[in-house]
Nucleic acid binder design. Structure first.
Length: 379
DNA sequence: AAAGCGTGGTA
DNA sequence: TTACCAAGCTT
């Protein structure tokens, strides 16, 4: 989001009350030091901040320890294969984060010699570091006097000062309005205190103003208009798209899985072969015309619904037996033992033939986890 | 700079 | 069931 440093801003009078509230109510989280403890490990702070981008604390609480156990240090993350990182990230969404996490680890390890820059402006040069993450790491890990503005902080400031902007302009406005909260000491606690307040008290829905340590300072509360802030832009309706996923099954019960490109939707994750996106629900005739093996029968096995950020998807899972006997389980091509059959078209000659039991070896997005569950039922 | 990019919980 | 929301970044 955004960041602000306090240079000449008017000190905010509620800062001490906010920190006192934080000392009493802060949650114990896996990436957070005990109250009053030493500075946290910047690698832990960074990993948690990236995981928490648009992702709930409840989810990150579950996934952070496992990821850290697989990649305990910056160095181990930097030297790990990308596909291992993607597999560890599977299910968390926004997979570009995992690509950039890996790229930034490599830059920090190989170009910075494993030494972290402390300034937000330098951190912001790393992939995956926007204004928010750069400020959050600088404040929490290195006690730099900056305010990191995420959704929570923007909401708290919008209410404290009745800021009228809509996102993303609100974030800049909130950074300016909140500059008076920043001081030379307890920089990391201050940032986390505002976020914690936004998460636990100054919530988007049903805020608990009676529990808020800042309500005497809150303009929206004084005017009785807390629920009117922050203002929200009207949302566009999500379109529904359709797609066919091909369950090609060979004689040993294996199916063909393909790695998606490193850019775009589900980047670098694995999927059954997919048709192009369709504007309407496909019927059996359309499926037959698009099938990888035109001479083989195909049957509809399941409809799988899934929602992405900007569209709804209905996936039609079509099963098609593949008569080729494969030379090896992980072969990239099909043998020619079935001489009377047409070979698979080139688009289907890349990938891995895997049993359902082997799926943990590859990075599967949640959509494909749902699909695999239906394959398991139908197997 | 508007749009692309995941997922799970909640009302 | 649907819509909204959550410790955003990138092009």
């Amino acid at each position: 989001m955004t960041a602000a440093s306090s240079t000449s801003a008017t000190p905010f009078p509620g800062r001490a009350a906010l920190l006192a509230w934080y000392d009493q109510h802060r949650r114990t989280l896996p990436w957070r030091m005990v109250a009053g403890g030493a500075l946290p490990d910047p690698y832990h702070v960074w990993l948690s901040e990236v995981m928490l981008q648009q992702t709930t604390v409840a989810t990150v609480r579950q996934r952070f320890p496992d990821f850290l156990a697989e990649f305990p240090t910056l160095q181990q993350l930097a030297v790990a294969p990308l596909d291992d990182v993607l597999r560890a990230w599977a299910g968390l969404g926004y997979y570009r984060r995992a690509h950039q996490l890996h790229a930034a680890a490599q830059m920090l390890w190989h170009q910075h010699g494993g030494v972290w820059p402390h300034q937000p402006s330098l951190l912001a040069k790393l992939p995956g570091f926007g204004a928010y993450t750069a400020a959050a790491v600088a404040a929490i890990a290195f006690e730099q006097p900056v305010l990191a503005v995420d959704t929570n902080v923007a909401r708290v400031m919008a209410r404290l000062f009745c800021l009228p902007e809509l996102p993303p302009a609100l974030n800049k406005s909130a950074a300016q309005a909140g500059a008076g909260l920043v001081a030379p000491h307890r920089c990391g606690d201050l940032v986390q205190a505002v976020m914690e307040l936004g998460s636990l008290v100054c919530r988007a829905r049903q805020p608990s103003c009676d529990l808020c340590p800042l309500r005497q300072h809150c303009q929206a509360y004084q005017r009785g208009v807390v629920e009117d802030y922050p203002r929200v832009a009207p949302k566009l309706a999500k379109p529904t798209r359709y797609v066919i996923a091909w369950w090609l099954q060979d004689g040993q019960g294996q199916s063909l899985w393909q790695r998606r490109p490193d850019q775009g939707l589900l980047a670098g994750l694995w999927s059954l072969p997919l048709s192009p996106f369709l504007e309407a629900e496909p019927d059996d005739g359309l499926a037959a015309s698009l099938a990888p093996l035109p001479t083989q029968p195909s049957r509809l096995v399941a409809l799988v619904r899934h929602s992405f950020t900007h569209f709804h998807l209905q996936l039609s899972l079509y099963h098609q037996p593949c008569p080729f006997s494969l030379t090896s389980p992980n072969s990239n091509s099909n043998s020619n033992s079935g001489g009377s059959h047409h070979p698979l078209p080139p688009a289907y000659q890349q990938g891995r033939w895997l049993s359902l039991q082997q799926l943990p070896e590859i990075a599967l997005p949640t959509l494909m986890t749902k699909v695999a569950a239906r394959m398991d039922l139908d197997f």
